[in-house]
Design a protein around this nucleic acid. Structure first.
Lengths: 142, 142
DNA sequence: AAATTTTATTTGTATATACAAATAAAATAG
DNA sequence: CTATTTTATTTGTATATACAAATAAAATTT
């Protein structure tokens, strides 16, 4: 069934969630080859590009709650892709060598993911849509 | 931090999820007065409006997996807002009287939720945005 | 009519996420 | 310099969702 045929399709809650789930499925596929969920992959990329990042910063960057960041880090630590150093109340996150080595593959996955939807939407339409979603987010911010 | 300042803000995965979470938070607030999560509320409204609906139809209507629908129904059954009758492999869902009685309140919550964002976006902009998200979903459908 | 396939639903398990409380360090106020 | 408040992070617990397997009924094939 097409989403537009469903009864509450005119509702933003409904539509935003349906879109997120659909995009998530595509993203999960795109990162399957490195055995990471999209959020884990994004977190790892951020840490590789800026080693030492603190959970609080990651929380801002990924727009996820601190507790969620902790959980993501725990998993990546178990996979030996990054390590935590704790000094006082500050935690710093660093990629391990094997984490760092993953970077090219991660970028490849990201590229693939982009292609997935840019192919269907066209580049300009994609950019436009993402931007108008940002505007919506920022407006709802209040 | 505004989403547009974050590093992967140009990414659809990231943006679609951030939007969904933000909208979800607003929706949760809107339905707090009836003590239901948004998905539970939508499911209940559908069943009140069309008593006897089957899980499979609900799954289509709400764009959620059958197993998720079962879980939502279980919870609403515990709250005595609906009941299941099972006949062969077919299950029918009916609202209980107290479920039915909730309808006006549910509609009030829905209205409140709409107002929340229509206020900020304007009516036309809201409709336009939801529509363009649909188009995106349908295009990604392939 | 028996065997097979398809369909509808549920169950067991796993995931990502968040909230609230706990911890502990740092900053500030008295 | 002690007491209080603020800040950064983690932990315990709860939620919504999905996947894969299980179940069982119905439909189809042979």
């Amino acid at each position: 069934m097409k989403i537009s045929e469903s009864k509450y399709s005119n509702c933003l809650y409904f539509t935003a969630n349906a879109l997120a789930r659909k995009v998530e499925r595509i993203a999960i596929d795109s990162w399957k080859s490195v055995n990471l969920s999209p959020s884990h992959a994004y977190l790892l990329m951020l840490v590789i590009e800026e080693p030492g990042l603190q959970p609080g910063v990651l929380s801002d960057q990924l727009q996820l709650k601190p507790s969620t960041i902790t959980r993501l880090i725990e998993k990546l630590e178990k996979k030996k892709l990054l390590i935590r150093t704790m000094d006082g109340r500050i935690t710093n996150i660093y990629p391990t060598p094997s984490g760092k080595n993953l970077l090219p593959k991660l970028k490849e996955c990201l590229k693939q993911f982009y292609q997935n939807y840019v192919e269907v939407l066209g580049k300009e339409e994609s950019v436009r849509l993402v931007k108008s979603m940002h505007q919506l987010i920022d407006k709802l911010e209040g």
